[in-house]
Amino acid sequence: MSAGKARFFLQAKWTGARSKMSRQQQTFLGNGPEMKVSIGKLELKNPVMLASGTCGYGPELADVLDLTNIGAIVVKGISMEPRAGNPPPRIAETPCGLLNAIGLENVGVEAFISSKLPWLHERNITTIVNILGNSVGEYQALAARLNKCPGIHALEVNISCPNVKEGGVAFGTDPEQAAKVAGAVVQACDLPVIVKLSPNVSDICSIARAVEDAGASAVSLINTILGMAIDIQKKTPVLGNVFGGLSGPAIKPVALRMVWQAARCVDIPVIGVGGITSASDALEFFMAGACAVQVGTATLVDPGAAGRVLQGIVDFMQENHYQSLKELRIGP
């Protein structure tokens, strides 16, 4: 029985999971489709991850999702210094979507290492750290600081968050700047480096190629799409920050299109993110050319979502006789 075969269970507390679990266990012990994926030198036991900013640092979710069965957790974006984030209101619901302007609130790299990372490390949870900086130097310093920490399996470089005025968006919209950040992070650490791309660009391929050339092990996309909402009674923008990032099912078609494009212009793995709520959403991304996926907003609504997505992918592959994820891809 290969350890990489699909052997995981939905968390038993999850409604209805109990009956499903025993059926799946019987079916899959030993002969499920191959679910392992490689990102640089990192091997994930399966291709479903939790997206940064939607899963905290892990413990918040532990009651309702078994994190050891998930491909990886991508923790909330970390900066050198702690950040307080944006003034409230920070979120607004839109049709099939969520606008957020959290403003990259985080505990800072030192507190992350001392008080958040040990919990993940002790449980052997595959951990990818999302990093963000205001300068190339800050990204580099973060990579160097995190490099020596046991329990970190890869870095994801956020060059795309639209919320922070001093830089985030500039790195992600200019191929040269994106390459500089990617190159600096790759130089500063031995970990696989994933670069997370912004959808708020006109040519996703030039950015994806630039970070590939700079040595990135993979790209993930998309981050949120810049948007806003207005309260017509109060005649003011809903969000304290005026603009926010749109996520959730509303952005899936845009994410899918961009993953399709990126997968056809780079050779490194492409990780699909954006609106994935169900296994069929995820399967669309694999067919578009993604090698792995991240579940974001769906986890906020339904903390067990990633487990269900994973189970559904295996079910589909089994029923339709796919042996590997690569076979799902459409065309070249």
Partner: peptide, 9 residues
């Protein structure tokens, strides 16, 4: 959005 401490919203 989440009620669990995940989103900081």
């Amino acid at each position: 959005a989440c009620g669990l401490g995940l989103c900081l919203g």
